[in-house]
Design a protein around this nucleic acid. Structure first.
Lengths: 212, 212
DNA sequence: GTCTATAGGATGATAGAC
DNA sequence: GTCTATCATCCTATAGAC
């Protein structure tokens, strides 16, 4: 990090405002419906001026993706930092992720589902999510270390089950799932039972439950 | 059902061919990228001619949605019919659903995720999925009746957990999920442990596991 | 029912004045 | 850096001949 002049400062602020407007647009119209004119209108610029800040529409998507992933990482990191290592942290991470997807359904479409034809996140934009992955693995490892979970929970299938539960609950929240009961509005209550179920299945004392 | 003349017969066949072409298009370009010109080209017609069979692009989406839901229902029904009632049927339904989403990832986007801006399925197109919902509920009820599951498995949270597991595994398969480990190509093996985990958590003999 | 032709509109992106 | 003007495409949908 090195100091930046007021020029660069203002430029970055404008970039943020554009990203905010872009987020608002996809929140209202869906992740795949981002268009430059609407973003420009909201930020008080003309559409061609946006190209001073982003090279293309897909570049805007990429910046939106990177910022979203970084925000998610912040949430997960905060959850990991303010909870006891092991199972409490794991529970908090799942909870933070579900909460994030509930607060930002449109962003969730962009980050976690292939909903935008033609868009592939760059390696840089994808980077924060690798850190999230690491935090999850570390939490599971800590839980195993503390004998809160069976070592099998650290296997690919073990982490896969936990991740599937997280993604699944988030998926129900998006509401378009055929299985979702009409009127079953709130899925956050599923988080606690989900982690309980996972922890019970990978209980350390009875290794009989898990079959590979 | 009443008999149809050869006219109507040929018309329906052309409709099916158009739907096949449309499915191929979204399979290659993504669920949101359906366009009439490309579909027409593949089916050997000019783009305006499609409007003899579908009133609009969204109507084509709707027909695609309805046929896809009906196909999914067929798979689920077959799973329910060829397995013992209760837990075996439940397991087969989950497995059939995951297999379906693996075979048809693009169709899965359309059916189970809000990936197409502006498209809302009609009530008629949505109808087959209500039947799927009913088959799942019935399988859980049968499993409870046969004392394979605790009655709590039939609660909203219980079915929610099972559905979340199914949707989550399918979500991992789509591959865009941040949590998915690179190289973990096959998620079908997660089905067995997932249902095991669910069944263990809602085991009938020990009602202590589930807390509301 | 299928075609040609085209209306009519939206969009991404660029050129060049200021 | 922001603007006006505009290009170049692409798209859905309709009109009307055959």
């Amino acid at each position: 990090m090195h100091t930046v002049g007021p020029r660069e400062r203002h430029r970055r602020q404008t970039r943020e405002e554009i990203l905010d407007a872009a987020l608002a647009v996809i929140s209202e119209l869906g992740a795949g419906a981002l268009n430059m004119s609407e973003v420009a209108r909201r930020v008080g610029l003309r559409q061609p001026s946006l190209y001073q800040y982003f090279d293309s529409r897909l570049a805007l998507y990429d910046a939106l993706f990177e910022r979203g992933m970084a925000q998610h990482l912040d949430r997960v990191r905060a959850a990991a930092d303010t909870n006891a290592p092991g199972l409490p942290t794991l529970r908090a991470i799942v909870c933070a992720t579900i909460a994030f997807t509930i607060e930002q359904p449109a962003l969730t479409q962009l980050l976690f589902r292939p909903a935008v034809p033609g868009f592939e996140p760059s390696e840089q934009a994808y980077r924060p999510s690798l850190e999230v992955q690491h935090l999850i693995d570390a939490a599971i490892a800590a839980a195993i270390e503390r004998r809160e979970l069976h070592p099998a929970a650290g296997s690919q299938q073990g982490t896969g089950l936990l991740v599937a539960l997280t993604a699944g609950i988030s998926s129900l929240q998006l509401g378009n799932d055929q299985f979702a009961r009409p009127g079953a509005g709130r899925f956050l209550p599923l988080v606690q039972p989900a982690v309980d179920m996972f922890a019970a299945y990978f209980a350390p004392e009875k290794p009989a439950a898990w079959k590979p």
